[in-house]
């Protein structure tokens, strides 16, 4: 468990650095991908319905987002926890078979969560939010296939 937490912290940190320093050079219409959000969402989506774990993940992801922003520490943490819990709840309502994470659920929940996060974080709406959500989705799809493979391997091993 501790190994897993350290692993997650490490990835949040690397993604924070990447999105602030590397992917900023690959921005579209001024929007760079929010890799921390993508990783957080993937973890929430592929996690079993452990709501405490979602709160913990939201805290970690929000902390890294707030560390690299010019805001106070806290707003991203609250937003991610709320969005994470709502996304999981929606996923559980939609899911009809246990331990399945079909892409048809993932796509709309991710897009809605991503847009909701951007709107609430910026407190405004413009075209760039859609651009960023699409950009995020690109990385989320890659992440989805990786997470899917990991869960399948775990299932076979288990």
């Amino acid at each position: 468990m501790l190994k897993k937490i350290l692993f997650i912290i490490f990835f949040f940190y690397i993604f924070a650095l990447l999105q602030n320093s590397f992917f900023i050079h690959f921005n579209f219409f001024g929007s760079a991908p929010n890799l921390i959000f993508v990783f957080f969402f993937l973890l929430v989506f592929f996690e079993k319905d452990n709501f405490y774990q979602i709160i913990f993940l939201g805290f970690l992801a929000g902390l890294f987002l707030d560390f690299f922003s010019y805001n106070y520490i806290g707003p991203s943490i609250v937003l991610l926890i709320v969005i994470g819990l709502l996304a999981k709840k929606t996923q559980l309502l939609l899911k009809n078979m246990e331990n399945k994470f079909p892409f048809v659920y993932f796509l709309p929940i991710f897009l809605v969560s991503s847009v909701a996060y951007q709107i609430l974080a910026a407190m405004s709406f413009d075209l760039r939010i859609i651009v960023q959500a699409t950009y995020n989705l690109f990385f989320a799809i890659i992440g989805f296939s990786i997470f899917k493979k990991i869960t399948n391997v775990k299932k076979i091993q288990g």
């Binding site: 650095l17 990447l18 602030n20 320093s21 590397f22 992917f23 900023i24 050079h25 690959f26």
Partner: peptide, 10 residues
Amino acid sequence: IQKVFWTAGD
């Protein structure tokens, strides 16, 4: 590390 990423991205 950020400087390295910035230069690499650039």
